[in-house]
């Protein structure tokens, strides 16, 4: 069988929509999103079960009133600033995706987290503090309310409100053009890689 770098399921992701879940707090780190003890699995299959594992449970191990317990079925997570900081673990956005999150609206993201979202085809868009907080409050008041992220148009619509959001250029291009699986893209540039490598004094050439 010939190598199949294109075996991804890349799609054009121009918009995502659904009900929302607010996950409030600045500097929410990936250790909270997906505690390390649950990374001891060689696949991502079960990660949804571990999403915010500690934060979602009370002292007896029962579900508490964490938003993820109250807004089950939501597709749009709404977060604050520097979300996903700390560890680079892709387990965090994998867990969110497998729980049902298709898109994220936030004030800002840690870079590795944003990169990981892009790799998974999850748009992570940004808006200012007041705008995000208003949206979070709206979700609390309208748990069944519909939210739409227009990746291409860089807007988020909820109720009668349309807000402008920012989408990182590379993320927008990747998602809208359906080229967010970078393996296939870069695999096709193999000869150019060879040229770059040939000029690096510390890399031995091919035998």
């Amino acid at each position: 069988m010939a190598p199949d770098a294109d075996a991804s399921t890349d799609q054009h992701i121009t918009e995502v929509s659904g009900t929302g879940v607010p996950i409030p707090g600045d500097d929410v780190d990936t250790d909270q999103i997906l505690p390390a003890q649950f990374m001891k699995e060689v696949t991502f299959d079960n990660m949804a079960d571990y999403l915010f594992y500690d934060a979602r449970r009370d002292e007896d191990g029962e579900f508490n009133d964490h938003p993820l317990n109250r807004f089950e079925g939501a597709s749009i997570a709404v977060v604050n600033s520097n979300f996903g900081c700390g560890s680079s673990r892709e387990h965090a956005p994998q867990a969110m995706m497998r729980w049902g999150v298709d898109g994220v609206v936030g004030e800002s993201y840690a870079e590795i987290f944003r990169d990981n979202c892009k790799s998974l085809g999850i748009p992570a868009v940004t808006a200012d503090h007041e705008t995000v907080v208003e949206l979070q409050e709206w979700i609390e008041a309208n748990p069944d309310g519909h939210i739409d992220i227009d990746v291409e148009g860089e807007t988020v619509t909820y109720g009668d409100t349309v807000i402008d959001v920012d989408v990182d250029d590379a993320m927008r291009e990747a998602l809208v053009e359906g080229i967010w699986d970078t393996t296939a893209l870069m695999y096709s540039n193999r000869s150019k890689v060879d040229e770059t490598v040939a000029d690096l004094p510390y890399v031995e050439g091919d035998d």
């Binding site: 393996t183 540039n189 890689v193």
Partner: peptide, 20 residues
Amino acid sequence: VGIGTSQIRDVLATGCIAAD
């Protein structure tokens, strides 16, 4: 740079990452 697992796949398969 620290990378996620999909980017590890990129490096394993192509020796490269896509980066800003």
